[in-house]
Simulated scan of single mutants.
Amino acid sequence: VEISLEAIDSQAQIRVRDTGKGIRTEFLPYIFDRFHQGDSGTTKANQGLGLGLAIVRHLVELHGGTVGAESPGEGKGTTMTVRFPLVSIPQEFTPPTDVEPPVFTLPLNSSTDSAPSLEGLQILAVDDDPDTRELLKFVLAEYGAQVLTVGSAKEAIAALNENLDKYDVLICDIGMPEEDGYSLIKKVRTLDAESGKIPAVALTAYASVQERQKAIDAGFQKHIAKPVKPIQLALIIADLVGKK
């Protein structure tokens, strides 16, 4: 990866060039459009909604800048160029020294008085993103649950088969490499004993009405769109298993 910064006329130009995967010529004109991806399947290796570069363009334009992309084609790398207008600072300008530091307070409705208890629940959480797995484990443990996290549908099935009656709730991402959440829940519903009946929550960035119905039809009891507040997730799980 090569990164350069230079002043061109009245603009600052940041250029990032790599020799990686590159971009197909026919896809290049749409790279900054919302919900456009080179690979949009639910089992693609790199998950996402196709919003990243659209957000980049929006933020750059808010600062009066421009962003563009160039690529000779797949396998030939990509060059991203961002330009911002340079603003001259008057010589007599003096930064303020009496600015009070910001004070952060919890919102009024953040009380844990009505927080549900997940004490004693064994939860199996499936997500291919390591940070999401770590967050789920931490958040649900705060409400008393014991959480095993795995990174794929294959690992989830192995965990369920290892102890058929251990888990009380399954939380599963939809978009995962190799095998997605829809395929996983269909396999779970064919398992013997209580594992096949395990209450299941689809926790996913696929948030449309159609995706919600698809998740329910596949075998999930609940569909939750990311991002979700921890207490909302805990409340939904508690309701699903009949805990207060």
Rank of each mutant, 00 (worst) to 15 (best):
E2Y: 07
S4P: 10
I8P: 02
D9V: 08
D9A: 11
S10K: 15
Q11W: 13
Q11H: 14
Q11Y: 11
Q11M: 15
R15N: 03
V16F: 14
V16M: 10
D18I: 02
D18S: 03
K21E: 14
E26L: 02
I31R: 06
R34F: 08
R34W: 00
H36M: 13
D39M: 13
S40V: 02
G41C: 05
T42P: 10
A45W: 09
L49D: 02
L51S: 04
G52R: 10
G52K: 07
L53G: 02
A54T: 04
V56A: 05
V60Q: 04
E61F: 01
E61T: 07
G64C: 10
P72T: 04
G73L: 10
G75P: 03
G75Y: 08
K76P: 04
K76W: 03
T78H: 06
T78N: 06
T81M: 01
L86C: 07
L86S: 00
V87Q: 14
I89D: 08
F93K: 09
P95E: 09
P96D: 02
D98Y: 07
D98P: 01
E100T: 12
E100R: 12
F104D: 12
P107G: 10
L108D: 15
L108T: 08
N109S: 09
T112P: 00
L118S: 09
G120P: 02
L121V: 11
L124Y: 04
D129N: 09
D129V: 15
P130S: 11
D131N: 10
R133E: 06
F138H: 10
A141R: 10
Q146E: 15
Q146V: 09
V147A: 10
T149Q: 02
G151H: 10
K154T: 15
A156S: 09
L160M: 10
L164I: 11
L164K: 12
L164V: 13
C172Y: 08
I174C: 06
I174P: 04
E179P: 03
Y182E: 00
I185L: 06
K187V: 01
L191D: 14
L191A: 10
L191K: 09
A193G: 06
E194C: 02
I198L: 10
L203G: 05
T204W: 00
Y206L: 13
V209K: 13
V209I: 13
Q213L: 03
K214E: 14
A215P: 00
A215D: 07
A218F: 01
G219C: 08
G219L: 04
G219N: 06
F220T: 13
Q221W: 01
Q221L: 05
K222W: 00
K222E: 14
K226S: 05
K229S: 12
I231G: 02
L235S: 04
G242R: 11
